[in-house]
Simulated assay, not measured.
Amino acid sequence: MSPLRYVKHLRLLAAPRRLLTGDVTAAQVAHAVGYESATQFSRECRAIHGRPPMQDAARLRARLTAHGSA
């Protein structure tokens, strides 16, 4: 994996955690993890996770809630 690809991978791993921890938008998270373009961030999240960032965060939130109530 190239250094650039590795950094991108780390940014995309950090993004869902940031979306889960607060009342933030995908654009705010994009900038927080180092993307200048929220559109590019959304496109790359969709490519990696199979859904837009906010949908991925909602899915993760539901999963955490389900595990917490079990």
Rank of each mutant, 00 (worst) to 15 (best):
M1L: 07
S2I: 11
P3I: 09
L4G: 07
R5Y: 11
Y6E: 14
Y6P: 03
Y6G: 11
K8V: 08
K8C: 08
H9G: 08
H9R: 13
L10P: 01
R11K: 15
R11Y: 01
L12D: 04
A15V: 04
A15K: 09
A15N: 04
R17G: 12
R17E: 10
R18A: 11
L19Q: 03
L19W: 01
T21Y: 14
G22E: 05
D23A: 12
D23K: 14
D23G: 12
V24T: 13
V24A: 09
V24G: 02
V24Q: 06
A26V: 03
Q28G: 07
Q28I: 06
Q28R: 08
Q28C: 01
V29A: 02
V29S: 03
A30Y: 02
A30R: 00
H31Y: 07
H31K: 14
H31C: 12
H31M: 10
H31L: 14
G34V: 06
G34Y: 02
G34C: 04
Y35R: 03
Y35L: 09
Y35Q: 03
E36H: 13
S37E: 05
Q40S: 15
Q40N: 10
F41R: 03
F41L: 02
S42N: 11
R43A: 13
E44I: 05
E44G: 01
A47W: 08
I48S: 07
H49A: 07
H49D: 06
H49L: 06
G50T: 01
G50V: 05
R51F: 06
P52Q: 03
P52M: 07
P53G: 05
M54V: 13
Q55C: 04
D56K: 11
D56A: 10
A57W: 01
A58K: 10
R59P: 00
L60C: 09
L60P: 00
L60M: 13
R61P: 00
A62E: 12
R63K: 13
R63M: 13
T65P: 01
H67K: 15
G68D: 10
A70Q: 12
